[in-house]
Design a protein around this nucleic acid. Structure first.
Lengths: 392, 392
DNA sequence: AATTATTTTGTTTATAAAACAAATAAAAAA
DNA sequence: TTTTTTATTTGTTTTATAAACAAAATAATT
């Protein structure tokens, strides 16, 4: 537990003021005092500190109401930059935002190796490149978060990545050895869940994100905070048993949800019905567009199994929002209707189920946002960046 | 969000000092300063405030080391009393503790009505009786928490109690109308989970309690706080589907865990195997004592289904502790072994599964502890009371 | 058009509250 | 008497607050 002294007061009031500046985008000192409830003098002193630290800046703007014209304050967006890296199987995404959370760079690198050392080298060089590129800024490249598609322990060591078959890799420490600083490693679904809250569902303190791809990943926000669990392995929802003695799973059990609700499971359903084999999300989209009967049947059967898991999640967590991130579900207009049709239990309570608007970028923009929150030591963060959507 | 000022600092330091006094039971001012890191002068001032408020008291004790003899400080246990009420179906438990969390009174009243108004009257009169009885204490009966075996909404309105078939009953407000104050209504499993943390697993920030009785109730502690969910209905684990198209459930779905892992489900298993019908927990205990083959078979089959749900819970929550509260499991020595045998998945992570040491008293002692925490406005609480065990 | 009044913003000054640091007093064993 | 430990006192620093003040803009009046 923490003891309180003068410095601690000043810190929490500074955090509060920064939070309000983020939310209001542009706000005067007088208004800051009104919104926060702090004294005008207190706000003035804090604001001057923030200006000296170059974290916020003043702008004079047109003003047509009576009284002295206010000096508007806003985040100094070019003070610091933040890198998010999504370490997927056959490609790596790099995304950089400014201090406001606006994306200023987005790059995708195809991978043709799965050797840990090679990938670590590649990532290290790339980070160093960006560090150079933004070295002109007051705080340069201030924080980097790496999203990995597997379990990460509480000490940020990679526990297991199924697609790479990497176990117990201390990527953070290995990169630190290569001279990289201000670095964090986090599960991709956790970052995606965080992104949904920071960029879209600001007020949702109980939010669950489900990633349906080669496996099932989930990020859980409870009481406004990420729920990582005791070892950091919470949210392994794919290994919830929904068909006892069902299909064998790599985890050693039988009937895991992942074997029914992941994308490979869907392709199995579909290819059993169709007269020609399909392999990609584009193949599915095309068939949906022409209203192919077999693909609709396969989709609905898949969704029935997805819904069993969602029913269980709702009963355990009573979430406010459930955000689904799946290209296939996203391209099938009827998917949310179908899911809701299955959630008829009288004890299931949730507010809304939606499809993610961030899509493939969710982990990297969440990574950047977490960098901002960590850099400014804020207890929470709401961003209104507009250029992080699926299509961007 | 909260602004910081002097009063806020003073409050958090006061909370910290109280917390340390609870943990250390008896401690001098000098030691308090060392443990908290606060200045000796600060501790002296705070301690004098607490003595003036009659929340702590000084004692002089034997002391054989060199130097001035310290004045030991401890909680003034008779300053305030706390009532916990467990509103079960055919009986009501009343438990009163002092400010240290030691039980000073425990009463059980058999019920022969299920009419809401009658029960509310009975409870109100009983609370008034205890208020009188402890009116001599500085703060009298300071807080009352009522545990109900059903869902409670975030506004403390009873949403649904299956055994009583009560829906949307505002028991809290109805009792306030009858002149009762400082009153809270909470789900019984939440209070039981809280009790496990406060009285036993002080350091466990990720703890799940499972109550297996007529239904399945659960209390979830995540990041050190109770997880109630958006509406307050989190932890309806009994309605997780584990056998799609299985046994019909009152919730409208089929194959809910409750239909396989609750005590009625066990009695069904057992009575299908045995040559005579059994009805009570005592019947089961007797058969276990004589090593009856059929009862062991039934137990193990029941435990297999319990384990499926526990596997799912572990994968979703990655808890540190799982505490099981079930008289039948408690009386079957082999139960934890059997459960662990089923948890073989390579991705399931937990630290320990145990049987509750609080048993039937868990909800009422948790209720009293929550009263203490609420009364002193502490962020968390560890108690070392010794007279709250199952047998007491 | 010039002047005065009003309103709002932001700063200055004095005060109060809290923690802290250092010196001092108290008490007990060596 | 000396040493050691505990607890209090005195004075300082930091921070927020309240109230007065200064600055800057519009509105109203002459």
């Amino acid at each position: 537990m923490l003891t309180g002294d003068g410095a601690y007061i000043k810190k929490i009031n500074r955090q509060y003021i920064l939070k309000v500046i983020y939310e209001e985008v542009k706000i005067s000192r007088a208004n800051l005092a009104k919104v926060t409830g702090l004294n005008k003098a207190t706000v003035s002193v804090q604001v001057n500190d923030l200006i000296n630290d170059e974290l916020i800046c003043e702008t004079r703007e047109e003003h047509n109401v009576v009284g002295r014209r206010p000096i508007l304050l806003s985040i100094n967006e070019s003070a610091a930059f933040f890198l998010g890296i999504d370490l997927d199987y056959d490609y790596i995404l790099f995304n950089i935002t400014n201090l406001k959370g606006d994306t200023v760079k987005y790059e995708k690198i195809e991978l043709n190796t799965d050797i840990y050392e090679e990938i670590a080298d590649l990532v290290a060089n790339r980070i160093k490149h960006y560090e150079q590129e933004y070295s002109w800024a007051k705080f340069g490249l201030a924080q980097t978060y790496i999203a990995v598609h597997g379990t990460v322990s509480t000490d940020e060591v990679i526990h297991f990545i199924p697609t790479y078959q990497w176990r117990d890799k201390d990527l953070k420490d290995d990169l630190i050895q290569k001279g990289i600083n201000y670095l964090h490693v986090e599960n991709n679904a956790n970052l995606a869940a965080y992104a949904e809250r920071v960029f879209h569902y600001h007020t949702s303190d109980n939010l669950i994100l489900l990633n349906l791809s080669s496996g099932i990943g989930s990020g859980i926000i409870i009481n406004g905070e990420l729920h990582r669990g005791f070892h950091g392995h919470a949210g392994e929802m794919g290994h919830m048993i929904i068909y006892p003695k069902g299909r064998p799973c790599r985890c050693g059990n039988e009937g895991c949800w992942e074997r029914y609700a992941s994308e490979p499971a869907f392709f199995d359903y579909a290819n059993r019905l169709l007269d020609h084999r399909i392999y990609t999300e584009q193949d599915v989209t095309k068939l949906i567009e022409v209203n192919n009967d077999e693909i609709i049947t396969a989709l609905n059967k898949w969704i029935a199994d997805i819904s069993i898991g969602i029913n269980n999640i709702i009963n355990l967590y009573n979430p406010e929002m459930i955000v689904l991130n799946s290209p296939i579900l996203g391209s099938y207009k009827n998917s949310l209707n179908e899911i809701n049709k299955h959630l008829t239990s009288s004890v299931s309570h949730y507010r809304d189920i939606v499809i993610s608007g961030l899509g493939a970028k969710s982990a990297v923009v969440g990574a950047c946002a977490m960098g901002i929150q960590n850099f400014l030591e804020l207890p929470d963060l709401s961003l209104n960046a507009t250029n992080n959507s699926v299509s961007a």
